[in-house]
Structure formats: structure tokens, C-alpha cells
Design a protein around this nucleic acid. Structure first.
Length: 103
DNA sequence: CTGGTGACGTCTT
DNA sequence: GAAGACGCCACCA
């Protein structure tokens, strides 16, 4: 069910360690649905506003922040990641080699 | 039912 | 590496 899907996504994201990042596709695959990378983003967008999630630790497969360059959300995610020690280039690129989450 | 829309990914130039 | 074309799939007007 879609409701179950959202909850499993939120739960998994909450496990990403501080200072590490995961990709949408990686998380979807971990939940057993490698073709639903887009829906991980959907689940995050629709998470309760009062719920605290480390959503900033999720980027796309290229290691880029998936919000429009310099949009409010882009800048917020970049700032939050840098605040926890993740190196983010000016264009919003993360070095998955060093910050990638590997369970 | 039909078409448009994404916080995405893979393959081909 | 970069830029496009496709593929995917839940959701919604």
C-alpha cells in the first residue's frame, strides 16, 4: 500500500547516519523496489511537517541536490549538510565516494 | 480512461 | 564527462 510505502521510506531515511548521504534509487532498492526512486522523493515531500527527518541526506544518483539550483530548498539542504560536515560543491554536488552511506 | 507530472535512473551520443 | 532521449510508476485533474 502507498501508505505503508511512505512510512517505510521515512523509517529508512531516519537511519542514515549523520554526515553520510544516500541516493533515492539506493533507498528504493533497499526497500525492494529499484524502479521507484522517484517515489522516495514523493514520500519525503509528503512527510508530516511536524516529523523531524534527515531528508537533507538524500541526493540523486549523480550526487547532486535534486532541487532547482539556488532555490530556497536547495540552499537549505546545502547548508544543513555542510553543518554536519558533508562537503558540498557550489553547484550542489556531494562526493559520494567519501560521504556515501553503505550499510 | 487519458494525459501530464515529478525531491529519479539508465543508456546512448 | 556532458547532454538528451527514454523508461518508470503513483497520483491527480
Amino acid at each position: 500500500m502507498s501508505h505503508e510505502w511512505n512510512e517505510s521510506v521515512w523509517k529508512l531515511v531516519s537511519f542514515i547516519p549523520q554526515g553520510k548521504v544516500a541516493t533515492y534509487g539506493q533507498l528504493a532498492a533497499m526497500l525492494g523496489f529499484p524502479k521507484r526512486a522517484r517515489h522516495v522523493g514523493y514520500a519525503l515531500k509528503h512527510s508530516p511537517h511536524d516529523m523531524v527527518l534527515p531528508w537533507q541526506r538524500v541526493v540523486n544518483g549523480k550526487g547532486l541536490i535534486s532541487f532547482p539550483y539556488q532555490s530556497e530548498q536547495f540552499l537549505m539542504q546545502k547548508a544543513m549538510l555542510e553543518a554536519e560536515g558533508v562537503i558540498v560543491s557550489e553547484l550542489g554536488k556531494i562526493q559520494l565516494k567519501t560521504h556515501g552511506w553503505r550499510p
